[in-house]
């Protein structure tokens, strides 16, 4: 029972991290039908920027509580800068192209972003741990956890909820759904489709950067750490169903719990369990748990 509690807790913490990593990816896929490989690069940029700002403000002698604000600021800056640039300059030219074109275009952007990080911030690991330690610790089943881990869980739930509300309950969301369903008709009834694309992609980029910024205090940011996040996010949204917000949440929970189970009961399987889950789900339900079957058009 105690072990089960620990596994649940660890699994949920990891699920929160995974959700933050992957929600932007599924959002962009849902609206633009693009699997954005550069997502991981934006995520890393968010983490670097947030860490950089937090270190700067601590260096200036400000209250450590301000670092939380800096994390958010880092995410907003990176999201607002990278999103529109990537969408307007690059993606806009290739809408309607084959899937492989979009995959490779975003892969190239990923390569460029990865090296840009090094040029800007160097190769030494950077980290800021104050946001992580400031809130203190608590114990579950005799095992201490950091409150920041709970913050991550809460933020994931609230953020995920807000996104679902934005898509289902607002005018903007209804327009987005209309664009997803039929781009040409939407344009015909006066929707500025280009603007919707830019806004959606920027929102996705912001999600990626926010994920990076919030996870940054628990890790050290080093060159190359975006790579891992990219593949993990792929796995999560493939399991949950690409383009589905609920799917990303469920995928994150499944992967998070499976990995916690593996660590505690079968450490040898830690590496393969995620891909095994992905294969199983895709074999049984190719479109993912929450995915929609695409119509084959004649």
């Amino acid at each position: 029972m105690r072990l089960l509690t620990i596994i649940l807790m660890d699994g949920t913490v990891f699920a929160a991290v995974l959700f933050l990593i992957s929600v932007g990816l599924t959002l962009v896929f849902g609206v633009l039908r693009i699997l954005n490989v550069s997502h991981g690069g934006i995520y890393a940029f968010g983490a670097y920027m947030a860490t950089y700002l937090a270190i700067k403000i601590l260096g200036a002698g400000a209250s450590p509580y301000l670092t939380y604000l800096m994390l958010l600021a880092g995410a907003i800056i990176i999201g607002m800068v990278t999103g529109p640039i990537i969408e307007r300059v690059f993606l806009r030219r290739i809408y309607g192209s084959d899937q492989h074109i979009t995959l490779l275009l975003t892969f190239s952007i990923f390569l460029i972003l990865d090296d840009l990080l090094k040029l800007i911030w160097g190769t030494k690991p950077m980290f800021v741990s104050q946001p992580y330690t400031l809130l203190g610790e608590f114990s579950i089943a005799g095992i201490p956890y950091s409150w920041y881990q709970v913050v991550l869980i809460v933020v994931s739930i609230v953020f995920g909820g807000a996104l679902v509300w934005a898509v289902r309950g607002t005018r903007f969301g209804k327009i987005v759904v209309s664009v997803i369903n039929d781009r040409e008709i939407s344009q015909a009834i006066g929707i500025n489709v280009n603007r919707i694309y830019t806004v959606s992609f920027t929102l996705g980029a912001f999600c990626a950067a926010l994920g990076g910024a919030l996870i940054a205090p628990t890790i050290s940011v080093t060159p190359g750490f975006a790579l891992d996040a990219t593949v993990l996010a792929f796995a999560v949204i493939a399991i949950g169903g690409m383009g589905s917000l609920e799917g990303a949440a469920l995928g994150a929970l499944i992967v998070g719990l499976l990995r916690a189970l593996a660590v505690h009961l079968l450490p040898e399987a830690d590496l393969v369990v995620i891909y095994l889950a992905m294969i199983l789900v895709l074999v049984v339900r190719p479109e993912g748990l929450f995915g929609q079957v695409e119509l084959r058009r004649i």
């Binding site: 040898e268 590496l271 891909y275 294969i279 695409e294």
Partner: peptide, 23 residues
């Protein structure tokens, strides 16, 4: 499978093999 699913499932299988070779 087609489209992204084809790409992703291939990825998953090759990563499984990668894990096995490692292990």
């Amino acid at each position: 499978y087609r489209e992204v699913f084809f790409a992703m499932l291939n990825l998953a299988f090759s990563m499984m093999l990668y894990g096995v070779l490692l292990k």
